Simulated scan of single mutants.
Amino acid sequence: MDKKLSKDILNSVTKKTGKPVSETSLKKIAQKVSPDILQSEAQIRQLIKQVSGAAGVPVSEDTVKEIISAVKKSGMNMGGLEGLMKMMLKK
């Protein structure tokens, strides 16, 4: 993910949540993400929980299911995931 996109995402998350989000904490989470993690629903749920905790924003079960479905449909490639993130930030 390029630096401009990551800054855009960080700014969008901060704007949507109304809370500052630590770039460092999100990078730590992102560094642990691999294609294997994105294959497992349980691990995707854990990832959502970690990001939710870092942002200080609860995520409903319906939203978790929607995110899991979208991640699985993305084909697990980074381009698809970047597009997914952009789409979700527009919600």
Results as ranks from 00 to 15, higher is better:
Val13Glu: 00
Ser34Cys: 09
Leu26Tyr: 07
Val57Pro: 00
Lys27Trp: 08
Ala30Asp: 09
Pro35Ala: 08
Ile68Cys: 02
Ile44Met: 04
Lys72Trp: 00
Val21Trp: 02
Arg45His: 10
Ile48Asp: 04
Lys73Met: 11
Arg45Tyr: 06
Val57Gln: 10
Ile67Gln: 03
Lys27Ile: 11
Ile68His: 01
Val21Ile: 14
Thr24Asp: 11
Arg45Ser: 09
Lys49Met: 13
Val64Asp: 06
Asn11Ile: 09
Leu26Pro: 03
Leu26Asp: 03
Gly56Asn: 06
Asp62Thr: 14
Ile29Pro: 00
Asn11His: 11
Pro35Ser: 08
Ser25Arg: 08
Ile48Leu: 07
Leu47Lys: 01
Arg45Trp: 04
Pro35Gln: 05
Val51Asn: 00
Ala70Ile: 05
Glu23Thr: 10
Gln31Asn: 12
Val57Ala: 11
Pro35Met: 08
Gln50Asp: 15
Glu23Ser: 14
Gln31Leu: 14
Ser69Val: 03
Glu66Arg: 09
Gln46Thr: 14
Gln31Ser: 12
Val21Thr: 12
Ser52Asp: 08
Pro58Val: 09
Leu38His: 06
Gln43His: 04
Arg45Val: 06
Pro58Ile: 09
Lys32Tyr: 05
Leu10Met: 07
Gly53His: 11
Ile48Trp: 01
Ala42Ser: 15
Glu23Leu: 10
Ile9Tyr: 01
Ala42Ile: 10
Thr17Gln: 08
Leu10Pro: 02
Ser69Trp: 06
